[in-house]
Design a protein around this nucleic acid. Structure first.
Lengths: 225, 225, 225, 225
DNA sequence: CATGAATGAGAGTTCATTCAT
DNA sequence: TATGAATGAACTCTCATTCAT
């Protein structure tokens, strides 16, 4: 399962051999990281032995130590990976929604939730294991989370400036939206029987939009959910 | 720190000596559990060694094994402890708020959030370590969480029946409210600089009430937050 | 094999229970250290696995880590142990030889060599493994070696002052004597077939004394070897 | 650092290309061996990883396995290398000293010490790591050491036969001289601050010659040191 | 009721060695 | 000839658990 959708990056291959090696190395890294997320999702970080991890990835234990400095490094890499996906994919998805701040916000939330859905294990991981990391790792995570929240926050600020949205605490609203999206992973045991991702997103938008929109605008958007 | 406010329980003290012993035993248990929550809050369950735990509680390692069957038992006890506090204290707090379902809901959320505040370590623990438990333990947790949600769910159902509240997905709303309350513990690093518990509760109520109330009722309640 | 002869130390047992525990602990430490020297003598420090060590000492691996911080600590303790034996037992042995500096020196060398003989493994260890230690450990060793050399150096200085001995480089002579004594352990494979400890000591004294004594005094002492 | 001065060996170059290859191979071998001695001198055999060794030699790990069968083989080769230098260079150096057995012995000791000086790391290695080798390797070392001692032993025997030297245990004296020369490497931390190689050699000759020479001959040679 | 010395299985990590390129 | 990615056995060290006192 290679859930994290990553941007390919420009390959200005000066040296072919080196490029090939780099690609192979990078795909190796992905393979290892994916295996790690899978196993951690199944058993948790601490219960995961390096041997079990190696078995899952179908490589030797030692190989992990060529790509990561330590077991904890693997955890950090896995968490940073998913958080970067959030950060990098939110703005583009919102841009596609046109100029309307409300529609942009809705698109942002929808994309956010779908990334959560594609990486449920990894999202749970960010909650479960961030305290496992050292201070530097934790700071990196918090930083990424704040960066991720930026596009949705600015669109709310813009909406308020335009008079489209009520005066709210934009920062709080954004973190609430992110938490509700995380809920799809965190409380999946509870929601999965009754919801699909789409219906969950729709329900949460119906929950959250009323605080943002004046009554007469609300209906207009609710029908578009 | 004995954060969990627990109901005293009926003391049918037939034999004084036995009662004293029971109390001491129970206070011992509390002492040990409090120490466990403290250490786990600091380092996490897996990083906590039984020796460190014994040092924190100022007793020997062996003593823990008189009160708990295993290290994992301690974790389960600590988590169940906090979840029982939620379950047992929500209804009473809501009863004190009178008959108005909206005011009851607000009181319930407020009480929920204040328990979260008093047991931030333990709440984070429920997110971090529930996967550590075996299936039976996890089921117990889920069960308690569902039980806890009952009072708030019924009051919303009642509010909708009375026409006081909009038609919403009551279950989803309750879980959302609980998640937002948990947010005070989970994202404390983000919210603590800008919020006190009271202002956090007020802000979240302003966020959540619009979805529940018809516009003309909304203002009336918002002023009471 | 408990080769290192150690001074018992005063036991002002205020608290009997504690004293008993202390004694037991100290004898444990000796037991573990003796096992370590034995195994290291057999296989060398790096080839010695902690499991093999535990097997030799007939205890569990974990127990070693209650008494020593790390494998390297065991090595340092073993080396320091033997070097302290040299340092502590040389002066007393020399004092027993009376006032004559030459006789004192001979007694010192004889005692030094007999400690070497009783701790051949440990002596070889000091040569083989001192580079294994960290800088602090190596410094401790050098310090002890210099301290050990003090009694023999002063007796030579005294002998020269009295006119009993020729003018020599006292420090060099002492280090030479120590190296020749070490030779009994280091080159045991070569000397053992032809020498007993006593004859080795005698031969080395015959080798070393001529440089120290004027010809007419020499014969007098050589007959006493 | 190519400290070991090695005899070129007979180059019966039938085929030039092959000779070139052989030379290159042999210089490769030297390069690898020198790197090994350097790293081992710095860190010890066991602490030296093949990767560190390859880095030092600026080649790949795999290449070492073209020239040596195993890591232990490298150690053996390094030790044998230095011991062969001793064995091969002692007799020629002594021959240059003329016919006088005493002067020959002095020249032998001086050469021996200077080889020690040029290969301090390697000499320490022979003490530190010989136990690391298997029985066959250890036997090879002992054999070489005995072979090395031969020229000095025969010159002493000759000296005694000529009546130039006192009756001594020739074998013991030679081993003592070698140990004292080794001391320049083994106790370099102690002697280096006060001695140069030359003054160390001189001091040790003043220490050792009195046992060999009758008093009236002694002065004559001491002035030539 | 309370202790803490002792256990030993299992963890993360390293590294000599191989082999396809 | 030379590389270095990959292996996996073996290592040191930790720590939950027990039990004699």
């Amino acid at each position: 399962m290679t859930a994290v959708t990553r941007s390919p990056g420009p390959t200005t291959s000066v040296d072919v051999a080196e490029a090939v090696r780099a690609v192979r190395a990078s795909s190796r890294r992905r393979q290892l990281l994916d295996a790690a997320v899978t196993v951690m999702g199944r058993t948790g970080f601490h219960q995961m032995s390096m041997q079990a991890l190696a078995d899952e990835a179908q490589v030797s234990v030692g190989l992990f130590y060529k790509y990561f400095g330590s077991k904890e490094d693997i955890l950090l890499a896995a968490i940073v990976d998913i958080l970067e996906a959030f950060r990098d994919q939110l703005q583009p998805a919102m841009d596609l929604a046109g100029d309307d701040p409300v529609l942009q916000l809705m698109a942002g939330f929808r994309r956010y939730a779908s990334i959560v859905d594609e990486n449920r294990d990894a999202v749970v991981l960010t909650y479960r294991e961030s305290r496992t990391l050292d201070a530097a790792g934790r700071d990196r995570i918090k930083e990424l989370e704040v960066e991720t929240s930026a596009p949705m926050r600015s669109v709310i600020t813009a909406g308020m400036a335009d008079g489209l949205m009520n005066e709210v605490d934009a920062d709080l609203v954004v973190f609430d939206l992110m938490m509700l999206a995380h809920g799809w992973a965190l409380k999946h045991w509870h929601f999965a029987p009754g919801y699909e991702l789409d219906s969950y997103v729709a329900a949460q938008l119906r929950f959250a939009l009323p605080t943002l929109l004046v009554p007469d605008k609300l209906d207009e958007y609710l029908t578009q959910i």
